[in-house]
Amino acid sequence: MQLPIPSQFTATEAEAPTAGITLIELSGQLDAHTAPDFERFLEERVRNEKKAKLILDFSALGYISSAGLGVLMGLIEEVRAQSGDMKLIKVPEKIYHVLDLLGFPIVFEVLPNLDDALVSFSKVK
């Protein structure tokens, strides 16, 4: 299932690597225009299943604006309240810098790759 998004942003739900974990690949520009779509997309996933375990793959993401970051920050509490979690993987250096400025790594687990994220999810269990 793909969320079609104008211009240059797509969020794709990829093959689930482990049951109960959702991998979402982001690509393109997550800015003020595309953030609302992304928010809807994520909300759907969070609302559809309790204990949503989401891994967001940032590898193909070219840009993330404050609005996009707001979406992530806004949802993390909700996800955690339902004892789910959201983890970020393969964050490009430029984007990591933005995340770092805002203090994201303190709230989110930012991991180098999918395996790490899966291991990290399994540890929590």
Partner: peptide, 26 residues
């Protein structure tokens, strides 16, 4: 709910400058 703000500020006392940032660019 999805909004946030970044701030940075400088304060001056004599020659001493203090600086803090809340998510803002360096």
């Amino acid at each position: 709910r999805r909004s946030f703000v970044t701030l940075a500020a400088l304060s001056f006392k004599g020659n001493a400058i203090k600086y803090a940032r809340a998510g803002h660019t360096p």
